[in-house]
Design a protein around this nucleic acid. Sequence first.
DNA 1: ATAGATGCAAATATTTTGCCGCCAG
DNA 2: CTGGCGGCAAAATATTTGCATCTAT
Lengths: 166, 166
Amino acid sequence: MSATPLHRVSTGERINDNEPAGRLQKELSSRGIRLTRQRRVVLQVMESAARHMDASEILEQAQKIDADITRVTVYRTLDLLKGFGLIDELDLLHLRGHRHYYESHGPRDHIHVACIRCGKVREVESPLYEDLKKQISRDCGIEISVARTEIGGVCDDCRGKSVSGD
Amino acid sequence: MSATPLHRVSTGERINDNEPAGRLQKELSSRGIRLTRQRRVVLQVMESAARHMDASEILEQAQKIDADITRVTVYRTLDLLKGFGLIDELDLLHLRGHRHYYESHGPRDHIHVACIRCGKVREVESPLYEDLKKQISRDCGIEISVARTEIGGVCDDCRGKSVSGD
DNA sequence: ATAGATGCAAATATTTTGCCGCCAG
DNA sequence: CTGGCGGCAAAATATTTGCATCTAT
């Protein structure tokens, strides 16, 4: 049944193992964007992120490195990065309120699969997803620049793994 | 290349033509949920919605029918419907700020395809999408209850339709 | 009759903005 | 040097909650 293999990317740990350190910095300076001390810190936080932090968590992490950084700067830097498509903004199906989460955008799009009971989030890539995007691009006549898929459900663990009969 | 056809659902008009009037009401009462005057109005607004309204717009529409309805009731009713999976919550890639949009959840999931330039939103279904969800369900061991895909890019119109050579 | 809903107002939470002094390039 | 940037405080949005009252069943 399952012809095309599905690639698991991560289950809750950091996702940026394949991300060259300083990638965001490079991207910004190559665009002529001024690299301030505060921005460097926020970028560093984003790159080394465990995962899926909201603005407050990013602020918190940034202040551990440099106490001078303010919430406003975090918002402004996130906006900047978003504008260049260097980070993605998710809400993880609002399983935990209306917060927005951010993550450095890697080379490939991935799907966020979240358990609505335990909150665990897994990230997957799939050739099928790439096919789908190609088809939509062709059929809708659109040059895709951002794609986001979030899927929620109850995971095996939370269903007691006894997915026997049903 | 494109084997599976992609079904266009709508381009900006109402999506609920196939939705039986009173569906949400029926769903709620069958679950033993009390149907108050206010709830009926909000449900009616959701069902007859042109499309993609945020909480304020829903409130506005509801008050046209019954001026007594308050914003709080709208939020509480939306939460209720969300909890039962009867409506979906979208943010349309935050193209227009951080608002959340709601729409009555039809029988099939659909993908929202938005032009990041003109803001036009198109909804599509695709067998490929169903395949993708099946694969993820199988491979991640998850019983999917909600799926949301939002895709952004520049549409033909906004690229001057001159998508000749590339 | 009674559990559960609504309304009001206020509390929270989240994000944005104006203005001025400061710093990266 | 200089124009963009960060900080501060406050505004603008968005969402949630406590409590008294009312109503659908």
